[in-house]
Amino acid sequence: MSVLKDAGHLFRFVGIFVVLFLIFLVVRGFVVPKTFGEYGHYRAAAIGEIAANPLHFAGHQACAECHADIVATKAAGAHAHVNCEACHGPLEGHVENPAAVVPVLPNTATLCVRCHEASAARPKGFPQVVAAEHANGVACETCHNPHSPAIGSGSNAGGAQ
């Protein structure tokens, strides 16, 4: 009995502990996001938030809806598998509002060499030229239609073969 009385102050210290712990539990109930733990140890709502990020690249199917002719030209040539936005850049804005967002025509002087300037690091079978010797300053599209680059198909859409 007297031991309990003499240990009374210890319970006061432990009491502070217990009170703080209870406050912690209550606050935790309010602060932890509702969807936390729905799928795992994270806020499930974050998945939806990230999925709602805005698009910039529309995707080649969106292009084909209006530009079927160019897609057909492209499909017949060596650039069949090069998507429109690979050269023209991200154009979701154009898809959403074709009148307001007009794509800028890429400059072939810098565009073509990015892929086709000869370098020993590129795969051997990949078509490459030393641009300075090959074109001598003449613009690429003078001879090559970027949508179907084989010579002779230059202005003749769909004529590559």
Binding site: I50, A51, L55, F57, H81, V82, A86
Partner: peptide, 22 residues
């Protein structure tokens, strides 16, 4: 994010979309 906002809509990622050689 593996373009999570794209692949959940049936699109491919921006890097794959723009890659000219596949």
């Amino acid at each position: 994010t593996l373009c999570y906002h794209r692949i959940t809509k049936g699109l491919t990622t921006a890097c794959c979309e723009a890659c000219p050689t596949g």
